[in-house]
Design a protein around this nucleic acid. Structure first.
Lengths: 191, 191
DNA sequence: TTTATTGTTGACTGAATGTTCAATATTGTG
DNA sequence: CACAATATTGAACATTCAGTCAACAATAAA
């Protein structure tokens, strides 16, 4: 009982996530969050705790929503190698202004992970999830005969995860789609 | 004439650079800089301008000192391909606690480049410098017969630069040297 | 020695930041 | 209707922040 919430928790958390994604942790003020989340300071603290706690929830939310949705490409039916190509193409084909936001996970690894163990753990779990998704995809490719039996899927999945981060960082600073496309071709040549 | 400086400008700028490198731009306070640079606030403003201007100088200094020194490996005599391997090994073999600092350039691309054109330009110039160093190295490898004449050195150098950023981001969050070593092996397999 | 010039110092300022809280509003329950 | 429980609001608070400045110190030139 008691007074019910006047907003949807998930929707509001998504809005907070978007702000952190755009501006980073330190550069985001509570005022920014009030503006974008559409609820007052007190409600934020009452519902999500302090800024740090809200950020942790936002990163977890990103893992649950954005990362999961993105990784679905890798699980699609048909050629697993083709799925990996499609996954990388998503990054390349994201318009420059949205690409400049990068990825909340890599942004957070760079800004906070070295100084914030709690954040680091959440982020590591999501990175592990990405690597695992690549590995499963590669294993499927081996089973289907798309890749040789000798393929070391663990090593190759780490390479793909690292390459993804590299693409995202490079993509943040260059609007040149062709340059990214060329890099993707080299990445795919290792398969 | 007038009173002479009591500190060495380069030394002091290096100390500022180290703080920004460790903590990032937003998370670094003027007090942090006063503590580490060993001069008072007034002297910082008198010598380097405001925080933003000091940061720009620090990033340029990084390009002049750290990046240049690191890229020297690529210019060494002998096998150019071997030089690239050595370059990547430097990242892998950096101890985890220092690796967590990452690279001031990639840190800055992620934290500031999308919102700060002035910073973005400085950083882009340094990234271009890295790519050019790779390309020169690759061209030398082609000339020496280490790589086939058909090698597209521009594309491959972009791939190596992107891979370097990826390694640095991954290296920030994992202390596992073997994982990075494996990734480097895949990167080198493209040559 | 005097003067002009410029570096040094640290207290001070105003603005921004994260957080709290008392007053109020809205629901379910007795 | 009265009460308990909980959400909402925004003013208020303490802290931190970047930046300023008047007083002082150290040098070279006259």
């Amino acid at each position: 009982m008691g007074r019910p919430y006047e907003f949807d928790r998930n929707e509001t958390l998504t809005k907070a996530m978007d702000v952190f994604w755009e501006k980073g942790y330190k550069a985001t003020s509570i005022d920014d969050l009030v503006d974008r989340m559409g609820i007052q300071r007190g409600s934020i603290y009452n519902t999500f705790g302090d800024k740090h706690e809200l950020f942790l929830s936002a990163v977890e939310h990103y893992g649950d929503v954005v990362t999961s949705r993105t990784l679905k490409v890798l699980e699609a039916d048909g050629s697993a190698v083709e799925n990996i190509k499609k996954f990388l193409d998503v990054i390349v084909n994201t318009p420059p202004d949205r690409r400049s936001k990068g990825c909340l996970i890599s942004n957070t690894v760079v800004e906070l992970a070295p100084h914030d163990e709690e954040v680091a753990n959440v982020v590591k779990a999501i990175m592990k999830k990405i690597q695992s998704a690549f590995q499963k995809c590669l294993e499927r490719a081996v089973e289907a005969g798309e890749l040789p039996e000798t393929t070391n899927t663990r090593v190759l999945s780490n390479f793909l995860a690292t390459s993804t981060h590299g693409l995202i960082v490079t993509g943040k600073s260059t609007p040149d789609k062709k340059q990214l496309k060329d890099v993707v071709d080299v990445i795919l040549s290792t398969l």
